[in-house]
Every structure is written in C-alpha cells, then in structure tokens.
C-alpha cells in the first residue's frame, strides 16, 4: 500500500473513491431506467439509418425533372418503330367516324357489284397495288 505524501496524492485518492462510488451508483440503475436507456439508444440509432437516405430538399425538384426526362427518352428510344406505326395506322376513332357517316353506307348501296369484285381474288391478281391486295 502506498503512503500518502502530499495534497495531490490525497486529491487523487479522493477522485478514485468518488469514481468508484459513482460507478457503483450507475450500475445500480433499476431495470426500468435501463430499459428506457436502451429504447433511447434504439431511437437514436434509427436516426442514423434515416440520415443515410435523406436527400437535401433543394435537390428534389431537379431530381424529379431529370428522372421524368430520362424515362421519356428511354421510352422513345427503345421503341421508335412502334411509335411510327401507331401514328400511321388507322385509329379506332377514325373507324367509328366512318361508320357514323351516312356517306360511307350510301357508297356501298350505289354499286355493290363493284365492291364485291374489289374484294375478290380476281381483283387482287389484276391490280396488285390496290389496298388489301397483299
């Protein structure tokens, strides 16, 4: 056992005893307080997980615009042929307009023999450039 030689040794010994008494009191915390501390730690660490994925607010509009532009370009570039075909083909709206028109029906009534011939194999052989001739 070391002998005390001065006031500094006394201070150090006092600090050592104070630390031991304090450490014992910290270890004596009841189960309720220990559980609350564990929950507090869990909440704090959850903050750490959220912080990883947090995007600064001023980047959000720019990011959304960039994403929308990239999506539009990707859709257009991956299927340009289909896009052109969609434009060239008659749309169902046009078919509906034709059926709704009285002129269209009158046309078939005026010369039914001609239209019957036009749809026959003979017409396709005679005039291959006609629409529907293959």
């Amino acid at each position: 056992m070391s002998e005390r030689t001065g006031p500094e040794d006394g201070d150090q010994e006092f600090a050592r005893r104070a630390r031991a008494v304090f450490a014992a009191s910290a270890q004596r915390l009841d189960a309720g307080r220990v559980a609350r501390l564990a929950e507090a730690r869990r909440v704090a660490l959850a903050e750490h997980g959220q912080r990883r994925f947090r995007v600064p607010g001023f980047w959000l509009p720019a990011g959304a615009l960039a994403a929308a532009a990239a999506l539009a370009i990707a859709v257009f570039m991956t299927n340009p042929v289909q896009h052109a075909t969609l434009v060239a083909e008659a749309s169902p709206v046009e078919d509906a307009e034709l059926l709704a028109s009285n002129d269209g029906l009158d046309m078939y009534a005026e010369d039914p023999e001609f239209y019957e011939w036009a749809g026959s194999d003979e017409a396709k052989t005679a005039a291959p450039d006609l629409p529907g001739a293959g």
């Binding site: 009191s25 220990v34 730690r41 750490h48």
Partner: peptide
C-alpha cells in the same frame, strides 16, 4: 455505415448509464 452503427451502439451503451446519472 453498418460498422459505424455498431460503433455508435457500443459508444452509447458504454456512456448511457453514467450520462444518465
């Protein structure tokens, strides 16, 4: 980040009782 989270957990666990007192 996982290592950092573990370090944080260890650190907080180490100090929490004394900090509370």
């Amino acid at each position: 980040t996982l290592d950092q989270a573990r370090e944080l957990d260890r650190f907080l666990k180490d100090v929490e009782r004394r900090a509370l007192r």
